[in-house]
Nucleic acid binder design. Structure first.
Length: 914
RNA sequence: GGGCGGUUAGCUCAGUUGGUUAGAGCACCUGCCUUACAAGCAGGGGGUCGUAGGUUCGAGUCCUACACUGCCCA
């Protein structure tokens, strides 16, 4: 990379090149270190193989990459482990859809062929999202990439299943589960999304056998009455007390069922009497268990009614509802029908209304796992940021139900259980058995179900490092340092990793046998990650959730192509305040593209001067090391050095607490508003001095200093904007960089010794003096090119600063001369007073008296209000008695200042009005 | 129904343990092509911090209630 940079910054010209270089050079590959000391590692939440990069990924990965690059540059052994998830349902749906275009169905192909087809699909398309990731500059270790269905990970999944089964923590049974009639599989509670929907509440009369009376029940799903096996009333409900034990006839199918007493029936809701359908409602299922009721399943796996529904068999559930209502109407058994808001459960994947269904499934007995997962978070062994997620997590974990882990799919980890058709028992084993472990029969067949995808992803923090083998990787990389993820998978993934990690890396069921100290240490080391940082959602500019149906989805790749990856990364980082959603606004990105351009042009300016100095012999500098701090001689040198270290410190602190926004803003303001706007502008004069100066030392010193700060700024910026900083950093070294990448250099470390508040205050004074002159000139409408004489009144110390930096005032404030006066200037036209000095621009043009009066009056009013406030406080005895000395002194000093300023302004106004 | 947030400039958001004059970006107005950058430079206007109480010498910040609003869980 030479010093020749094109005039305007063009991200598309550099980003692809560096992204390719980082991957090809294996720059972010980490060999397994000898010890876990000084290791920082992070698991990429594996995207689905079917996935396409969206803004959520980009936010997630930008944050991870910033943290990872920062740690790497701090000299730690830094591993960011990438991989993809096989995503059971999603992938199977994708391939089924592909088959549909060929008029094929998976059922026609058979399981084996279908699975082979999915693998083929995965080989073709499964890497797309990782390719997109590469454009983001994600500095992952591609050499360690995994897929959740890899052989070694599958072995680990089996191992976990078998152990949990042996420990009695996995069981199989017939229960009510959430069933998706479209996916034709059971799904877990978490995969059901509840939606408020306007529905109806129907009252149905059930004739009481042996009487002319009816009992009226209320229901939102009348078709399920075909499976009713009881009517329940609350035992305390006086209205129904004498009916308990009576028998009613279920209309339409004429089944006789009993009226039972159960607390579940809520006297306040509907009629107070409820129908009980144990095979089609989880609460009714529980009632059924308590009262030993029959379970009549009236639907098949597609939610069509089956033979148990008599004349309704074959109808879809909604057609059946319509028909049932019509028939009830005919028999005059339908009572009031009213609107009713209800919460409907839908399949997270395909949005089909979920049907509670009685079926045989595998479950994880969750309580023992949850107990430990609660303990580690309670004790702070895992730290949440923002910390309110700790409450949310614990709340959920304390109210957790058993986890249904079996799925009636073909794509996924097949359950390692074999059913015996002779003794009906299950054999659960690591390797396929040849005979039943219970009766020895050879008539065994493997369970056809696969495991919930989240079951295998819950294990990743240890399985990716080689578990169940005791590998070196496992020893040094587990627990991982940090997890960065979105709140949407807090329960799906984060919570389950904690449960599984703490169990399997914490001696499983043997932990409690350890003594107190040992147990505590083991527990502490069992966590899958020490910290969790949870980020919010990326929304559109109007704060709307992005969705395909709304058509407001922002495609990161498209936005990257328009503004460059660095600008988009910086946008996300600068808006990533913990706990709040990000309303992604393109205007911001445009602004950060401008920032990148600013960096680019600063580089061009500096390189131009380096080249010029080389030609004039002022800059031999063959072995110049910009990372070595040169001596600061001038105010601006000392100041920018102090600011650099202040900002470095601020960035360090911000990143430690995941304040990506603060870190990004601090470095942005430093580079643009301080380094470019002030330092470079002032130093320009010194850079040009070489021509007239025999030994050219001024130019050399200025250049050395400028390069030092600039190079440091590039390193400071590089985790946020890896591409442009890489490009320019190589150019700084004129193609002979000391490392293969800026990412492999050290991050700037704050040096408190170089921070000097006196210098910063002195510079602030100089800046305010220059700004005042500019303001007066603007107000007096002095033409830009015209240099004007400036007069000032100031005390010795301040006068000295102004005198010593005369060249800056002349250049930056367009001052022709600076003359120090002995008398107050406040009554003269074009003057401005401040606590530290008075300044006046000498300009002969007629002043706009009205405008000037308005300005002075406004200023005066503001100061008077402030003075009144200060005086009120100083007159307040309570305040004087209780406020800290520091605050009181501050107000007193300010009151004095104000008095002086007000007097001067009043006098100036008088003068103006004369 | 249970839980967790949010409400600060036209917009999007900062504001650390309560302390002197509440900040940024974008947008807006004015003037500048000052040879690094018009994707730029300089200057400027704009906020009674959701409402009502309370604690305090002092509240954007702490407490209570209310209003509006977002999300999670059932």
């Amino acid at each position: 990379m030479s010093h020749e940079l094109p005039k305007a910054y063009d991200p598309s010209a550099i980003e692809a090149r560096w992204a390719g270089y980082w991957v090809a050079e294996k720059l972010f590959h980490v060999a397994t270190p000898d010890s876990p000391k000084n290791v920082f590692d992070l698991l990429l939440p594996p995207p689905n193989v079917t996935g396409r990069l969206h803004m959520g990924h980009m936010l997630n990965q930008t944050e991870m990459d910033i943290i990872i690059r920062w740690h790497r540059m701090r000299g730690e052994n830094t591993l960011w482990l990438p991989g993809t998830d096989h995503a059971g349902i999603a992938t199977q749906m994708m391939v089924e859809r592909q088959l549909a275009t060929e008029n094929k169905k998976r059922q026609d192909m058979g399981r084996e062929k279908f699975v082979e087809r999915v693998w083929e699909w995965k080989r073709h398309y499964g890497g797309a999202i990782l390719e997109q990731m590469k454009r983001l500059g994600a500095s992952v270790d591609w050499g360690r990439e995994y897929f959740t269905m890899d052989e070694n990970l599958s072995v680990a999944v089996k191992e976990v299943f078998v152990r949990l089964y042996e420990q009695g923590l996995i069981y199989r049974g017939k229960y009510i589960v959430n069933w998706c009639p479209r996916c034709m599989t059971a799904i877990s509670d978490l995969e059901v999304v509840h939606e408020e929907t306007q529905g109806k509440l129907y009252e149905i009369r059930y004739p009481i056998v042996g009487s002319k009376d009816y009992i009226t029940v209320a229901t939102t799903r009348p078709e399920t009455m075909l499976g009713d096996t009881a009517i329940a009333v609350n035992p305390k409900d006086e209205r129904y007390k004498n009916l308990i034990g009576r028998v009613v006839r279920v209309p339409l199918i004429n089944r006789e069922v009993a009226i039972i007493a159960d607390d579940w029936a809520n006297p306040e809701f509907g009629t107070g009497a409820v129908k009980v359908t144990p095979a089609h409602d989880p609460n009714d299922f529980a009632i059924g268990q308590r009262h030993n009721l029959a379970q009549i399943n009236i639907m098949d796996e597609t939610a069509k009614l089956n033979e148990n529904a008599g004349p309704y068999a074959g109808l879809d559930r909604y057609a059946a509802r319509k028909k049932v209502l019509e028939d009830l109407e005919k028999e005059h058994l339908l009572g009031h029908v009213k609107d009713h808001m209800l919460s409907i459960g839908k399949c997270d994947r395909c949005k089909t209304v979920v049907e509670p269904r009685l079926s045989t499934q595998w479950f994880v007995k969750i309580a023992p796992l949850a107990k430990r997962a609660i303990e580690v978070v309670d004790k702070g062994h895992i730290k949440f940021t923002p910390d309110n997620y700790k409450t949310i997590y614990l709340n959920w974990m304390n109210n957790i139900y058993d986890w249904c882990i079996s799925r009636q799919l073909w794509w996924g980890h097949r359950i390692p259980a074999w059913h015996c058709s002779d003794c009906k028992q299950d054999t659960v084993a690591r390797e396929a058995p040849t005979k039943c472990a219970h009766c020895g029969s050879a008539k065994i067949e493997q369970d056809t179900d696969v495991l919930d995808t989240w079951f295998s992803s819950a294990l990743l923090p240890f399985t990716t490092f080689g578990w169940p083998k005791q590998t070196k990787d496992l020893e040094v990389f587990y627990p991982t340092s940090l997890l960065i993820t979105g709140f949407d998978i807090l329960f799906f993934w984060v919570a389950r990793m904690i449960m599984m990690g703490c169990w399997f890396m914490g001696d499983e069921d043997k932990l409690e046998a350890l003594n107190g100290v040992q147990r505590e240490e083991k527990l502490k080391a069992s966590v899958p990650f020490r910290e969790v940082y949870i980020h919010a959602l990326v929304r559109d500019a109007d704060r709307q959730k992005m969705s395909k149906t709304k058509g407001n989805v922002i495609d990161p790749i498209e936005i990257i192509e328009r503004f460059g990856t660095d600008a988009v990364r910086f946008t996300l980082a600068s808006m990533a305040a913990p706990g709040t959603d990000i309303a992604f606004n393109e205007d911001r990105t445009e602004g950060y593209r401008a920032f990148a351009n600013k960096i680019w042009n600063a580089a061009r300016f500096i390189f131009m001067n380096v080249d010029k100095a080389q030609q004039s012999g002022a800059w031999p500098a063959a072995n110049f090391d910009p990372t070595a701090t040169p001596d600061a001689k001038t105010l601006e040198d000392k100041w920018i050095l102090s600011r650099f270290h202040t900002v470095t410190q601020a960035v360090d602190e911000a990143l430690k607490s995941y304040r990506f926004d603060e870190a990004a803003n601090a470095v942005y303001r430093f580079f643009w508003n301080e380094f470019c706007d002030w330092y470079i502008e002032i130093v320009k004069l010194r850079l040009n001095a070489g021509e007239s100066e025999p030994d050219k030392s001024t130019t050399k010193a200025a250049l050395a200093f400028t390069l030092h700060i600039f190079e440091g700024s590039l390193r400071l910026l590089s985790p946020f904007m890896p591409f442009i900083t890489e490009e320019i950093w190589h150019a700084v070294y004129d193609g002979k960089p000391p490392a293969k990448s800026i990412a492999l250099t050290r991050y700037p470390m704050p040096n408190a010794k170089l921070v000097n508040s006196a210098t910063e205050a002195e510079m602030a004074l100089l800046q305010s003096f220059i700004v005042d002159v500019r303001t007066i000139r603007a107000e007096m409408k002095v033409e830009n090119k015209l240099k004007t004489p400036v007069e000032a009144l100031a005390k010795d110390g301040i006068r000295k600063t102004l005198e010593q930096n005369l060249y800056a005032i002349q250049k930056l404030a367009n001052a022709e001369t600076l003359t120090f006066m002995e008398k107050s200037l406040s009554n003269a036209p074009g003057a401005k007073v401040s606590p530290n000095y008075e300044v006046r621009v000498v300009y002969e043009q007629k002043i706009d008296v009205a405008a000037e009066r308005e300005r002075l009056t406004k200023e005066l009013k503001k100061l008077e209000a402030e003075r009144d406030n200060a005086q009120r406080q100083l007159a307040n005895e309570q305040f004087m008695a209780k406020a800290p000395e520091k605050v009181k002194e501050g107000i007193k000093r300010r009151a004095d200042e104000l008095a002086g300023l007000i007097a001067k302004l009043q006098s100036a106004l008088l003068e103006l009005n004369r």
